[in-house]
Design a protein around this nucleic acid. Structure first.
Length: 397
DNA sequence: GGGCAAATAT
DNA sequence: AATATTTGCC
């Protein structure tokens, strides 16, 4: 692996500038870069079209990192031959191993890149896609891909917010971000995607809100006739809201925009994190999750009452919502003997858990997904055991 | 420059 | 097949 930083005082050409002048830095010692790499198997991405794909790194890929002003902020995979060659060269003199697994038999392999062929029929030339083509001697090179790391994205969002979504244009964003290695094109591209995601997110939120509203209206209409909405035919049975609307929305959303509460299927751990969050989580900060987990306590009431706290992953600051619940006041002897649902935090019985789930199902004010799709009993039990809460005795009559 | 859409890369 | 990023063009 190699770390590369841009040379200071590169030429002003925006297109070539960032990538055109790269110097290999001594191998990074702290290894922090590596820590950021292989998390795709630590977390399972949510199966939602909204999440960004896992950050994968081909072992045969040379990783280039800009440092300097944007230290640790983003990575650029050097697919361009000059980068590769330069890196290798410097590398040799520094005695640093080239990316392990790099195709030895073809050191000048360029991964699915393109070469510019001088085209007689036009001054623009024509791109021809070519995988594993030596770039030696070719002129045009596709710019190495800038990877928008979470940190970089955070800065981007910060800049956008500072400017206001309306006034956020590439040049201003770039200015505020203060990362000269990026080009306006990089920003523009990211902005394009950002807007696109934001738009779809807002659309979905609106849909969800709409469904929710109509649902409420309908519910009100069936209950108290006087308050019924005259515009809403009470006979119409509304279909359930699209499940998608209730899925957690991911990082692309404008943080300022109110996101629907993230529904927790207690006692499961927090939902798998979109790749964008990996960094934060790996660094021990669960703020992203915690912040998004506002609102609805989904801990089944009987369990909460029995002193259960929703579990959290080791080392993670629990959401205030999930702080241990003080034990309930002692029951009278009579209550004790009559209560079928009595829970013992140390020894929850299967039936108690079952009852807890049933309890959830019976509560219309709890999030719909929770009621529609409660955790399976086995999952609950397994999770409890995993949490070391107690041994769960088999159900008894 | 900004923004959109096609082209590419992974 | 989908998504991220680059490039071309208006």
């Amino acid at each position: 692996m190699l770390a590369v930083e841009p040379l200071r005082g590169s030429n002003g050409d925006e297109r070539e500038g960032a990538m055109g002048s790269l110097a290999v830095v001594d191998d990074f010692v702290d290894g922090s870069l590596f820590e950021d790499i292989s998390f795709s198997d630590l977390f399972v991405g949510m199966d939602d079209g909204d999440v960004l794909p896992d950050l994968e790194l081909d072992p045969a890929e040379i990783l280039v990192e800009f440092s300097g002003a944007a230290e640790g902020l983003f990575r650029v995979d050097g697919a361009t031959q000059d980068v590769v060659e330069e890196a290798e060269e410097r590398n040799a003199s520094h005695g640093v191993a080239v990316a392990s697994g790099m195709a030895e038999e073809d050191p000048i392999l360029v991964t699915a890149t393109e070469v510019w062929s001088a085209s007689p029929e036009g001054d623009r030339g024509r791109k021809s896609s070519a995988a594993a083509v030596s770039m030696k001697g070719s002129q045009g090179k596709r710019k190495a891909k800038v990877e928008w790391t979470p940190e970089l994205h955070r800065r981007f969002v910060q800049a956008v917010e500072q400017l206001g979504i309306d006034k956020a244009v590439p040049s201003r964003i770039l200015e505020l971000m203060g990362i000269d290695c990026l080009t306006r094109h990089n920003i523009a591209s990211h902005l394009q995607k950002y807007r696109s995601h934001r738009k779809s997110l807002l659309t979905r939120q609106a849909e969800a809100a709409s469904w929710s509203q109509r649902r409420q209206m309908y519910a009100a209409g069936t209950g108290a006739k006087r308050g019924a909405n005259p515009w809403l035919a009470p006979t119409v049975v509304l279909p359930p809201p699209p499940a998608q609307a209730f899925r957690p929305l991911h990082v692309w959303g404008h943080p300022a925009a109110a996101e629907p509460p993230l529904v927790h299927m207690w006692p499961f751990p927090p939902p798998p994190d979109p790749p964008y969050w990996h960094h934060h989580f790996q660094r021990g900060s669960r703020e992203g999750w915690v912040a998004m987990t506002q609102g609805t306590p989904c801990l089944p009431q009987p369990m909460a009452a029995a002193g259960f706290a929703a579990p959290h992953l080791a080392g993670i600051v629990p959401h205030p919502m999930y702080r241990p619940v003080p034990p309930p006041p002692p029951m009278s002897k009579q209550q004790e003997s009559t209560s079928q649902l009595q829970l013992d935090a140390a020894h929850p019985t299967k039936e108690c858990i079952d009852a807890a789930i049933g309890d959830v199902l019976a509560k219309p004010w709890l999030p719909l997904p929770l009621r529609l799709k409660p955790p399976s009993l086995d999952s609950v039990l397994a999770e409890l055991q995993k949490q070391g809460v107690s041994k769960v005795p088999p159900a008894s009559g």
